[in-house]
């Protein structure tokens, strides 16, 4: 079973995403900001990260930069999932090493098709 870390400061979004991804047979872990997500990755590196952008303490982009700078780890596939839906944000995310990008609002079809595209399903 593949694992996915859901990083979002909204409990509701985490819950919805968890439901969808559990339906796609992922083992789920959650974090409410970038800092907690880094800690979660240090404990156990997931196969995938579903990543919000705007969060307190450490935002999604900062998290991604720190994650990609980690040496000697198995780098997970990172799919952004954010209300930031302009080209500029998309480009910055992809340049920082994101694998895919979901613009909120999302539904199960979008999550599934994006996860298929990056080879997680």
């Amino acid at each position: 079973m593949k694992s996915c870390l859901i990083v979002d400061d909204s409990k509701v979004v985490r819950m919805v995403a968890r439901k969808i991804l559990e339906g796609l047979s992922f083992d789920i872990d959650e974090a409410e900001d970038g800092q907690k997500a880094i800690e979660a990755c240090q404990r156990h590196m997931p196969d995938a990260v579903l990543l919000d952008w705007n969060m307190p303490v450490m935002n999604g982009l900062q998290f991604l930069q720190e994650l990609r700078a980690m040496q000697d780890v198995h780098q997970p596939i990172v799919v952004f999932c954010t209300t930031e839906n302009d080209m500029d944000h998309i480009k910055r995310a992809m340049e920082a090493g994101a694998n895919e990008y979901i613009m909120k609002p999302f539904d199960s079809d979008i999550i599934e098709s994006k996860f298929v595209q990056v080879g997680l399903i």
């Binding site: 839906n85 302009d86 080209m87 998309i90 480009k91 992809m94 895919e100 990008y101 979901i102 613009m103 999302f106 079809d109 979008i110 098709s113 994006k114 595209q117």
Partner: peptide
């Protein structure tokens, strides 16, 4: 729409071949 460009279209192709 945002929904239509997210089902099946890789983000890299959206970046290359679409404008907002």
């Amino acid at each position: 729409s945002q929904f239509e460009v997210q089902r099946g279209l890789p983000i890299t192709l959206l970046m290359k071949y679409f404008s907002q």
